[in-house]
């Protein structure tokens, strides 16, 4: 019969903690290398995607900046510059000019409902 050793705190503590001091895991190094490789590939994809997106954005910007002065057809440019009186921004405020033309006869008429509403409304 084996002899039961006397209790020794330091020895027992060391024995308890050291039973798991080293735990070899087969294949862990392969798994780590595999994960590192995946992360590297993902980083490369992200890098190339962002680089190509930035390049595409630069190309679009360059194209827009280059073509902006001649982007409007010559006829439209000529029309807008030859008839400045047609574009009366004050009367065409919020496209209201055409509506005002419709109600103008009623506004001029004395005691009409439209003139009453217009005079009693604060704008």
């Amino acid at each position: 019969m084996a002899e039961i050793p006397e209790p020794d705190f330091e020895r027992d503590l060391a024995a308890y903690l050291r039973r798991e001091s080293k735990i070899p895991v087969p294949g862990l190094s392969l798994r780590v290398a595999q994960r590192v490789r995946h992360q590297r590939q993902r980083s490369r994809i992200i890098l190339w995607t962002s680089l190509s997106s930035a390049l595409a954005a630069c190309l679009v910007l360059a194209f827009v900046l280059q073509s902006e002065p001649t982007s409007l057809p010559a006829s439209v440019v000529a029309q807008s510059s030859s008839h400045p009186a047609d574009l009366d921004s004050e009367t065409d405020w919020l496209n209201g000019a055409s509506d005002l033309k419709l109600i103008a006869p009623l506004m001029n008429q004395q005691n009409s409902f439209v003139s009453e509403v217009l005079t009693s409304t604060d704008i």
Binding site: S21, P24, L28, S29, L30, A33
Partner: peptide
């Protein structure tokens, strides 16, 4: 080299 480092150090790390 990374695999060698893992082989060298992982048993103590996993134990802890």
């Amino acid at each position: 080299a990374l695999r060698l480092l893992v082989e060298r150090h992982h048993p103590r790390l996993v134990g802890y």
